[in-house]
Design a protein around this nucleic acid. Structure first.
Lengths: 210, 210
DNA sequence: GTCTATATCGCGATAGAC
DNA sequence: GTCTATCGCGATATAGAC
């Protein structure tokens, strides 16, 4: 039952995941075939499907890995409890995330795309996205609760409500931005939204004030 | 150059569109094949593709038709200039639209799904969605401008900004709602958003007040 | 047992005959 | 305007190699 090092299968899966991640980011989901990915990983498409049950499941793994990296960046407290990051800094990191996603063109919109696809209960990514939004809502709500309380004057809005709205706003803005980048100043709109709730988040690197 | 009645081709296209609309709404986009739709319309899938260049273009037509019906419902002033609808009523209709969409399960999320897919410039639905969001932003902004001015006290927020945020919020909420309906009181969150901008929209059928 | 390849299926899409 | 034939695709099942 115990294993001392990565098995050959784990190394193969990592190789597949690297190839898929690279090709998806380069050309998008639909434009890349399993046969291309398999070739990049040195096998046939059927061999690839032995490790991952399907193309969408493979995309799911690519997104999950990126999600893990984002989470480590956004909520370092979850992974490194010893090091305290001011909530105001975390909030700005979340706002910055919208633009960070925009810098990887091939992967832009893949999240909202697959999230929309995953609406049907049978979809391979369904459970993952349900859990993802639950975690994000909870984490952002907890963060907002602290920021609201620390603001001067304190913000009276419900952190849970604002967290859900903030998530929806960022997703929806990304959809419009992907269609017509010039028409959607994403970061600006998110800052405007927080400002409407009495929270002033300075545009540059200044502190968050009430 | 003139035509007195619907051609055979137009009748065939209408038949195809009816079949596609019914099957997409019933089972979603991916679960339905062109061969099924063609069979329902009394032809082979190649025959269907003579009238519509591809499956996504067919979906696009289905969505566009629904869009036209929604527009006639939301902005009747555009089609019937003689009849004046109070902006407050139009605003509530927009808020109601989020729930109206939720009552056709098969078509839920298809808009946000295809909108996300249409991000790439080459996508058959790209131009359509760019135009769609432009129109919606402009119409909702014009509507908000009036409602803001009529509210007591008048709302000072920028109608263009709030219109873009409102659209994004409704799209994003629909994504979360499709994944976990119980976790997302869509209408409530939209009302909360407008309330944050000083606009009180009564939950029931009362008037909009400032 | 762990892994990969061959064979087959229905799919969306295209080309060309009628 | 509709068909038949054909292509590469994602997906599945099954057999075979290490």
């Amino acid at each position: 039952m115990s294993r001392q090092h990565a098995t050959k299968g784990e190394r193969t899966r990592a190789r597949i995941l690297d190839a898929a991640s690279e090709l998806f980011a380069l050309s998008g989901f639909n434009a890349v075939s399993l046969r291309e990915i398999a070739a990049h990983a040195g096998m046939t498409h059927a061999g690839l499907l032995h490790h991952y049950p399907g193309k969408e499941a493979l995309l799911l793994e690519v997104l999950a890995r990126r999600d893990r990296e984002d989470a480590a960046h956004l909520f370092p407290g979850m992974l490194q409890p010893g090091e305290a990051v001011p909530p105001a800094v975390q909030l700005r990191r979340i706002v910055d995330l919208a633009e960070r996603n925009s810098r990887t063109p091939g992967l832009v919109g893949l999240y909202t795309l697959v999230a929309a696809e995953a609406a049907t209960p049978g979809h391979p990514a369904h459970d993952y996205f349900v859990a993802r939004y639950r975690v994000l809502r909870r984490e952002i709500a907890a963060l907002l609760r602290t920021v609201f309380a620390e603001a001067a004057p304190p913000v009276t809005a419900d952190p849970d409500v604002v967290a859900q709205q903030l998530l929806a706003l960022m997703d929806g803005l990304q959809t419009q931005w992907a269609l017509e980048p010039d028409a959607v100043p994403m970061r600006r709109r998110v800052v405007d939204f927080l400002a409407a709730h009495g929270l002033r988040l300075d545009i540059e690197d200044g502190p968050v004030t009430g």
